[in-house]
Lab assay of single mutants.
Amino acid sequence: SFNTVDEWLEAIKMGQYKESFANAGFTSFDVVSQMMMEDILRVGVTLAGHQKKILNSIQVMRAQMN
């Protein structure tokens, strides 16, 4: 498990989005775990492969939080 959203993004090789997530207010796992595709688009993730990777990881995160 990760301590910060930045660490999580690095771990899934999506570190290039750290600033975008932070600027959009997605700075805690409570918020990130609620993200939908529209949120991912809003933070500027436009590549389908990256969207899928982030969404898949969020689903895993949700499962671990319950």
Rank of each mutant, 00 (worst) to 15 (best):
K13Y: 12
F2P: 08
V45A: 03
L9I: 03
K13W: 10
M14R: 00
G49V: 14
A22M: 12
G49R: 12
A22P: 00
N23K: 13
A24W: 09
Q64M: 12
A63R: 11
T46D: 07
N66T: 10
M65H: 07
M14K: 01
Y17L: 02
A63H: 14
I58T: 04
F21S: 00
M35Y: 00
S1R: 09
M36F: 08
L41F: 08
H50N: 04
I12E: 04
D6A: 11
K52E: 13
Y17D: 01
W8I: 00
E10W: 05
T46H: 11
Q64E: 13
I40H: 00
I40V: 09
D30M: 10
I40F: 06
L55I: 08
M37F: 11
G15R: 05
I54L: 13
M65I: 11
V60L: 14
S57M: 10
M65W: 04
V43H: 01
F21K: 00
N66S: 11
A48E: 15
G15P: 11
F21V: 01
M36S: 14
N56W: 12
A22S: 11
Q34A: 09
M37C: 09
I58G: 01
D30P: 08
G15V: 05
Q16P: 05
M61S: 04
R62H: 13
R42D: 06
E19C: 07
V60I: 15
V5M: 03
L9A: 01
M61N: 05
V45L: 02
L9M: 03
F26Y: 15
I12P: 01
G49S: 15
W8Y: 02
S57R: 04
Q34K: 13
I54F: 05
N3G: 14
M37W: 10
K18Y: 05
V5A: 02
N56F: 09
F26W: 08
N56G: 10
K13M: 13
S1Q: 14
S57L: 08
Q64K: 10
D6Q: 07
M65F: 06
S1H: 14
Q51V: 14
G49C: 13
N3K: 13
Q34I: 09
E7S: 09
D39C: 03
M35V: 03
Q16R: 11
F21N: 01
R62S: 08
S1Y: 14
E10N: 08
G44W: 03
G15A: 09
G25N: 05
K52N: 13
F2W: 15
E19R: 10
R42G: 08
I58C: 04
A48L: 12
I12H: 04
M37H: 10
M35N: 00
G15W: 05
Q16Y: 06
K53R: 13
N3A: 15
S33R: 09
N3L: 11
V5K: 02
M65C: 08
R42P: 01
N3I: 09
L55P: 00
I12T: 04
S57V: 04
M65E: 07
N66R: 12
Q16K: 08
L9W: 03
L9S: 01
T27Y: 06
W8N: 00
L9Y: 04
I40Q: 00
R62D: 08
M65R: 07
V32M: 03
S28H: 08
S28T: 14
A48W: 07
L55R: 04
V45D: 01
N23V: 12
V31K: 15
M37P: 11
Q51P: 03
K53L: 15
K53F: 11
E7I: 06
L55M: 14
F29K: 03
V45K: 02
F29E: 02
K52R: 12
L47C: 12
M61G: 03
I12W: 02
Q64W: 06
E19G: 08
Q64D: 12
N66M: 05
K18R: 11
L41D: 05
V60W: 10
A63G: 13
L47K: 12
V31L: 14
V32W: 02
V5F: 03
A24I: 04
E10K: 07
V45F: 01
Q59G: 10
S57Q: 09
F29P: 04
T4I: 05
R42E: 08
S28Q: 06
H50C: 03
N56K: 12
Y17M: 01
I12L: 13
V43R: 01
G49Y: 11
E7N: 07
K53M: 14
M35T: 01
N56V: 12
N56Q: 14
A48S: 11
K18N: 04
V5G: 00
M35F: 04
V32P: 00
M36Q: 15
M37I: 11
G44I: 02
F21L: 03
G44C: 03
I12V: 04
S28M: 05
K52V: 13
D30G: 10
V31C: 09
E7K: 07
I58F: 02
S33N: 07
Q16W: 05
I40L: 15
E38C: 08
K53N: 08
Q16S: 06
V31D: 09
S20V: 08
Q51E: 02
N66Y: 02
I40P: 01
N66L: 05
E19F: 07
L47M: 11
F21T: 02
M65D: 07
M61L: 14
M35W: 03
D6N: 10
M65S: 07
M14S: 02
H50P: 03
T4E: 10
Y17I: 01
G25A: 04
A22Q: 12
K18M: 07
N56S: 13
I12N: 04
L41S: 06
I12R: 02
Q16V: 11
A63Q: 14
S33D: 04
V5P: 03
D39M: 03
K18I: 10
M61C: 06
K13C: 14
